[in-house]
Design a protein around this nucleic acid. Structure first.
Length: 834
RNA sequence: GCCGAAGUGGUGGAAUGGUAGACACGCACGCCUCAAGAGCGUGUGACAGCAAUGUCAUGGGGGUUCAAGUCCCUCCUUCGGCACCA
């Protein structure tokens, strides 16, 4: 029972000493295969079952490919910057550096215990200055290309973490990490223009082999809408501000625009309040001020939760609808987002629910411009089904379908130079500043004379200084700001007195490009050499969680595409990842997500301690399809354990048998060759659960044929097992080796099974002598027919035999056969008239 | 509301348009055992029948086909993501 522990420690030591076993070899002539699993955040609670699931999936594939003779790069590292470490360090009064060291040491050991075949020679750590030197270098390149800029902007502020959050980190108006409600706060932030790459990020997906749902998720997140910008004149005689620009996807409904709405943050409002050029009463100005103030106070959650109840205030201004010169009022409302489009819209209440609600509330005009297909009451609701209809009340375009009217209107706008075709995106620029200690320092210097200046590349890395107190400050300043000596520096440009940026980078920064560093881990002149990226790139398979299918993958692709434009990565490789595989989720035994508070957490180490590592690995792969959500079930695990025990016992028994046949029987060869074919195919497609099922089936079958099995077939079977159960396979492999070489112990001549050659199918053994075929009448199976294999392609002969079948005779009787269908080797179908 | 995934025995799940339920769990019976467990063996979709066998069955309804879990249309349900994006 305890036997497996001895075996595990024996082989763990052996593999450790044979350190080249899992080494990826630069520029090898073998076919390269880059298998990447998302590197973990090394938390204090150790490797959890989700990690084990994902890593095992990657490991099985890596081992499979290695045995197939490919040059496999299967690396591991640590995404170690981040809040939990910082918080834990504060609590335990330790340095985050120390906490990180402890955690990564623990993770590394756990991974070795679970027999993951990582190439530890290429380990990376995002918190290592020699690594984040290049993270900082990338930021400087972004700055130099005008893609990073500092901006005072309202950000999502988590009052509990005391940190600014990217839109992506706000979930339901709450902080993704701590769950506190997010409020708004104006802070000067570094912002990265990911929006400039929106189209490239959509286009580039064509170069990848991501599954559709990942592609779709990215496309949706970018959220491209095609439409037009239209400039409306403001009808105020003394106005110096001439135009109000809106974005609309429906320029074809311009005749139905009866009012305009601008966001409370719109720049026009400041002019409106502080400037006398507008003919607005002071009373009205006060109302506007009040509304803007109350809107600003609301959190995102409040703004959206109360979405049905529209609020707003009249600005006192009118715009002129260019198609009919009608004056239409300009309103201010927080249902219009400042951050999308131009922060201003033209409202067509007849055909938009929000505009309709607003019009109803404030008694504004509603003009239908699309003819409803059926009766529609425009007093009750907007008519939304506008894609197929007919334009009305719009003299020059009446009678057209909307698509045609759309083109016509754009042409007209462009001719008149009051608008043009354009696209708008849901994707926002990326807020890159974090007011925290445990992150990469942003390598920028603020000079009173020169403004923001990047550090000299020769000064990189800007090392995170060790501070006494790294708790976040209440005023939202980074803890680094208290390090007066560190902050004080000289301007890289003019040499004058200047101060450092004290914000740090977000978590994503280090994980954006880590896959590049694995290709050339120890390079100290560039982030990775072009030649090595050309050799190893792109990542062939990237295994990760659904939760990273949008953000991490998008940021990472963006940075890669930026590096591509920069010429830092090879021109031949426009995309970093070829295939993306999302692993599933393991739920607790109760079917709920694992959490400490529910007490349903399964720890891989604990289970491995009871049943053995191979059982855990194999069970994880057997639970179900690799990408599905499954609940932990100890009973099913026992089934896997039984299989491995039986396998081990059977092989050991055979080994101790004195006389073993020198050549397996045809029957055994058929079973094993079929198995090789099936398992190889399943592994290629990551169908681990069925691969294991087929091995179980094969073991059951050969159990009755033990006297017919030779070493050759046994060896093949052990090899098939090796990617899943590396310890068991190695142990059995060594037993066979000792027997073959007549030795009591393994010695230097022994070669690990994990670099042994993957078995090949011998087609001549796949042919069966007899085959069973189904005979059906009108599509319903009624009988079976055993025929010799040679008859397989002789349709007439098989059909003749089928007709002689007693049961079939009875079913057919005197009825007329109108059709005979023959599927070679599978079935015969007679179509008869009833 | 929008996007995506999925609905198959008591359970997890198998099925290039070609014998639905592989494999595993659970359950039942049997063997072994002083006994428990483990192990081994047999059976196990539902209904009818001693059985041979028959009928029904892959969320509901319709369709294509010699043949549909699989393809098409439609509806329902569950899960995941996005959401005042003009």
């Amino acid at each position: 029972m305890e036997n497996f522990k001895e075996i595990e420690s024996k082989w763990k030591k052996f593999w450790e000493n044979n350190f080249k076993l899992y080494r990826a070899e630069d520029y090898s002539d073998k076919k390269k295969k880059y298998v990447l699993v998302e590197f973990p955040y090394p938390s204090g609670s150790g490797l959890h079952i989700g990690h084990a699931f994902s890593f095992t999936g990657g490991d099985v594939y890596a081992r499979f490919k290695r045995m197939q003779g490919e040059n496999v790069l299967f690396p591991m590292g640590w995404d170690a910057f981040g809040l939990p470490t910082e918080n834990y360090a504060i609590k335990m009064k330790k340095k985050p550096q120390q906490v990180t060291k402890e955690n990564t040491d623990m993770f590394r050991q756990q991974m070795k215990d679970l027999a993951y075949s990582f190439d530890w020679n290429r380990e990376v750590n995002t918190t290592d200055p020699s690594y984040y030197k290049w993270t900082q270098w990338i930021f400087i390149q972004l700055f130099n290309k005008g893609l990073a800029y500092k901006k005072e902007m309202p950000i999502n502020w988590c009052p509990s973490c005391k940190i600014g959050l990217a839109n992506e980190e706000v979930v339901d108006g709450k902080c993704e990490r701590c769950g506190a409600e997010v409020s708004r706060r104006n802070i000067s932030q570094w912002v990265v223009k990911i929006t400039e790459y929106a189209d490239k990020l959509i286009e580039g997906l064509k170069e990848t082999n991501f599954i559709d749902k990942v592609k779709q998720a990215q496309i949706n997140w970018i959220g491209k809408s095609e439409g037009a910008k239209i400039r409306f004149k403001i009808s105020d005689v003394s106005s110096q501000i001439s135009d109000l620009e809106v974005f609309t996807t429906r320029p074809d409904t311009l005749f139905g625009a009866t009012f305009m709405v601008i966001a409370p943050e719109h720049e026009l409002i400041n002019n409106l309040i502080s400037n006398d050029q507008f003919l607005i009463s002071n009373e009205q100005k006060e109302k506007i001020k009040e509304y803007v103030k109350s809107a600003r106070k609301k959190s995102d959650l409040e703004r959206t939760e109360l979405s049905k109840d529209k609020t707003g205030v009249f600005s006192g201004l009118y715009a002129i609808n260019p198609v009919n010169n009608k004056e239409i009022p300009i309103w201010i409302s927080d249902f219009v987002l400042a951050s999308y489009g131009t922060g201003a819209i033209m409202s067509v209440p007849a055909h938009d629910e929000r505009d309709f609600a607003f019009a109803k509330k404030f008694g504004l005009e509603i003009i239908p411009v699309i003819k409803p297909k059926e009766d529609h009451n425009f007093e009750k609701s907007a008519y939304i089904d506008v894609d197929n209809g007919e334009i009305i009340n719009s003299p020059p375009i009446d009678g057209m379908v909307p698509a045609e009217a759309f083109e016509k209107m754009i042409k007209w706008l462009e001719e008149k130079k009051i608008g043009e075709k354009t696209a708008s995106y849901h994707l926002r620029d990326w807020i890159f500043s974090r007011q925290h200690y445990w992150g990469e320092p942003i390598p920028m210097v603020n000079c009173p004379k020169c403004g923001w200046v990047p550090e000299k590349e020769s000064n990189l890395p800007i090392v995170l200084p060790e501070v006494e107190n790294y708790e976040p400050t209440d005023d939202g300043q980074s803890p680094l700001s208290q390090m007066i000596d560190w902050v004080k520096t000289t301007c890289p440009k003019c040499g004058g007195e200047a101060s450092r940026e004290t914000d740090t980078m977000p978590n994503w920064a280090g994980s954006d490009w880590y896959f590049l560093r694995y290709m050339d881990t120890h390079n100290d002149t560039v982030l990775a050499s072009q030649d090595l990226i050309k050799y190893w790139g792109p990542v062939d398979v990237y295994v990760g969680g659904d939760e990273h299918n949008v953000l991490h993958l998008l940021y990472s692709r963006f940075i890669y595409k930026f590096l591509w434009d920069l010429g830092a990565v090879p021109k031949e490789l426009p995309e970093p990842y070829y295939k993306r595989l999302s692993h599933g989720v393991i739920l607790g035994p109760d079917g709920a997500r694992m959490s400490k508070s529910k007490g349903n957490v399964i720890v891989p180490e604990t289970v491995a301690d009871v049943y053995g590592v191979d059982v855990v690995r194999m069970y994880l792969m057997f639970m179900g399809p690799f990408d599905s959500t499954m609940a932990w079930n100890e009973n099913t695990l026992m089934g896997v354990k039984r299989f491995l025990d039986r396998f081990e016992k059977k092989i050991s028994d055979l080994r101790s048998q004195i006389s073993v046949v020198s050549d397996s029987s045809k029957e055994v060869k058929l079973i094993i060759n079929k198995l090789i074919k099936a398992v190889t195919g399943d592994l290629e497609n990551f169908k681990y659960n069925t691969a294991i099922a087929k091995m179980m089936e094969a073991l059951n079958k050969i159990s009755d044929l033990r006297s017919q099995i030779s070493d050759e077939e046994i060896k093949s079977f052990i090899k098939l097992l090796a990617p899943f159960a590396p310890y068991t396979a190695e142990e059995l492999w060594s037993l066979v080796w000792m027997k073959e070489n007549k030795k009591e112990k393994i010695d230097d001549g022994y070669i690990s099974i994990h670099v042994a050659k993957w078995p090949e199918v011998e087609n001549q053994y796949l042919i069966e002598d007899k085959i069973m075929m189904a005979i059906s009448i009108n599509g319903k199976v009624r009988s079976e027919l055993e025929v010799n294999n040679e008859l397989k392609d002789k349709k007439d002969e098989v059909i003749r035999l089928a007709k002689e079948n007693e049961k079939i005779k009875q079913w057919i009787g005197n009825k007329k056969i109108v059709k005979e269908i023959y599927i070679p080797g599978k079935m015969i179908n007679f179509v008869i008239l009833n």
